[in-house]
């Protein structure tokens, strides 16, 4: 992911100095797709996706588990749709190439398929840990598994968690 950020950055720098970026634009868009999905998986594993656990935090433990389990199952279904849909496009795009770089056009869809599988695995792992009582239900998807030790860590977590695109 680090490399991808550098690549995308290098591309825009290249662009600024006006040298051939036709192919690099295509490449950086492919890489950006990789960055998004890799980052999304990592972020799910680290509990960094934007979520609002405020309401479920107030529920009794049993009900909280149930709600989070139901939510997790719904997320798994979403991941499945991503996998199924992306795979269908992989099959359609076999044999087509990008015009400039000549890379297979199925790359973004392969990335999407893999990401969907990984997202589902992470979700399953998190649900499993929660059911075994290793994680508090409300922390299942919204926050780090380990409770924040320092005040600092907690701040970071909340800031990261809430970071939207806003811009």
């Amino acid at each position: 992911m680090f490399i991808m950020v550098i690549m995308v950055f290098a591309n825009v720098c290249l662009r600024f100095f006006g040298s051939g970026f036709v192919a690099t634009e295509e490449l950086s868009r492919i890489l950006l797709g990789g960055l998004i999905f890799t980052g999304a998986v990592v972020a799910l594993a680290q509990g960094r996706h934007i979520a609002m656990p405020l309401v479920i935090e107030r529920l009794p433990l049993g009900l909280r588990r149930l709600v989070v389990l139901a939510g997790g199952l719904l997320m798994l279904y979403c991941d499945w749709l991503l996998v199924a849909g992306a795979w269908a496009q992989v099959e359609i795009n076999l044999g087509s190439d990008y015009p400039l770089t000549g890379l297979p056009q199925s790359i973004p869809y392969v990335t999407g398929t893999i990401a969907g599988v990984l997202l589902a695995l992470v979700t399953l792992y998190k649900l499993g840990r929660m059911l075994m009582g290793r994680t508090a239900p409300e922390r299942c998807f919204a926050a780090d598994d380990e409770p924040a030790t320092a005040a600092n860590g907690d701040e970071n977590r909340l800031e990261k968690q809430a970071r939207g695109f806003e811009s």
């Binding site: 950020v5 995308v8 950055f9 591309n11 749709l81 991503l82 849909g85 269908a88 973004p108």
Partner: peptide, 25 residues
């Protein structure tokens, strides 16, 4: 299912959106 996958994949496949990581960075 393709509606889900395709829009997620293509929705972000836009040159202009390349600026976003830099603004954040």
């Amino acid at each position: 299912a393709q509606i889900v996958a395709q829009n997620m994949i293509h929705g972000t496949d836009n040159f202009i959106l390349l600026a976003i990581p830099f603004f954040i960075l």
